[in-house]
């Protein structure tokens, strides 16, 4: 399997002008992702994870640097990656099916054709029977599934997931992680995943980027090569626990070292 670079960030920076002078939100950040990988970004609040996502999605121009997709400059272009926010943002006036086809519809696929394409996926990924319901009758987990399918059914190779399970309870979160794994192995997309949850990041990812704040930057790049498919029990294995400890110590504030040790 030859590794093809799918997404590359070259010295991406962000600087804001503030009354007290320029504030650097993002120090030069560079990394490259290979096709089909599952990569997580973890870091404290304010480390610029969301800014980074906005830049990759073309929703915010970087102050410097470039975003390359398939080796082409894609800085500031929208619609090149699928982007899912923590909020599901389902449209209350559309049925679940019509919400899921939104991305395809925006890209000019007719509603009829888009519905035909989406229906088997809804059935396959646990939304069967809910196609013609409205979002308000869905549980939190179901809503996230619909939102994720909406992102996946757009013909982009890269998807960005910004804390998609952040608002779910622990049990639902576990189910959703397994569901996401299944979907990822079947869709074979390159996934960039932002989370606060170290365990979640290690459990799901091939690689983890640990970020730090002031200015936002990448402090470490970890490769997580536990064999797949992974099972829940993995999280208690010594190798996993050691990696988790390592991440915790990287994320710890200078003041709370005692907590980690």
């Amino acid at each position: 399997m030859t590794a093809v670079t799918k997404l590359e960030l070259k010295d991406v920076t962000t600087t804001f002008a503030t009354p007290t002078g320029p504030f650097q939100a993002l120090a030069p950040v560079s990394f490259s992702l290979e096709e089909g990988r599952f990569v997580s970004l973890i870091g404290p609040s304010g480390c610029g994870k969301s800014t980074l996502f906005n830049i990759v999605a073309g929703l915010q121009p970087p102050s410097g640097g470039a975003v390359l997709i398939d080796g082409e400059d894609a800085t500031g272009t929208i619609g090149r990656v699928g982007y899912m926010l923590q909020k599901d943002l389902l449209l209350s006036w559309r049925t679940v099916l019509d919400n899921v086809i939104l991305g395809m519809e925006i890209r000019g696929v007719s509603r009829k054709e888009a519905r035909g394409r989406a229906e088997p996926y809804l059935r396959r990924y646990g939304l069967g029977g809910f196609e013609h319901q409205y979002p308000r009758s869905l549980s939190g987990g179901m809503r996230q599934r619909a939102a994720l399918l909406r992102t996946l059914l757009v013909d982009t190779d890269i998807i960005l997931l910004d804390e998609p399970f952040g608002a779910l309870d622990a049990q639902t979160k576990g189910h959703m992680q397994e569901w996401l794994m299944r979907i990822w192995t079947e869709f074979r997309k390159t996934v960039v995943f932002v989370t606060h949850d170290i365990e979640e990041a290690l459990f799901l990812s091939d690689e983890v980027y640990v970020m730090a704040t002031r200015p936002g930057r990448v402090v470490e790049h970890l490769t997580v090569d536990f064999p797949r498919p992974r099972h829940r029990g993995l999280v208690t294995e010594p190798g996993f626990v050691a990696l988790k400890q390592h991440c915790l110590s990287l994320l710890a504030e200078p003041g709370d070292t005692a907590l980690v040790a």
Binding site: G58, I78, G79, V81, G82, L85, K87, L91, G103
Partner: peptide, 26 residues
Amino acid sequence: DPDGERLFYSLGATRWQVFRKLIVPA
């Protein structure tokens, strides 16, 4: 919700699409 607009734009929507499919029904 401005995030709704961000979602539409991240999907590559035009302004007219955002207007017609998000703003007007909302």
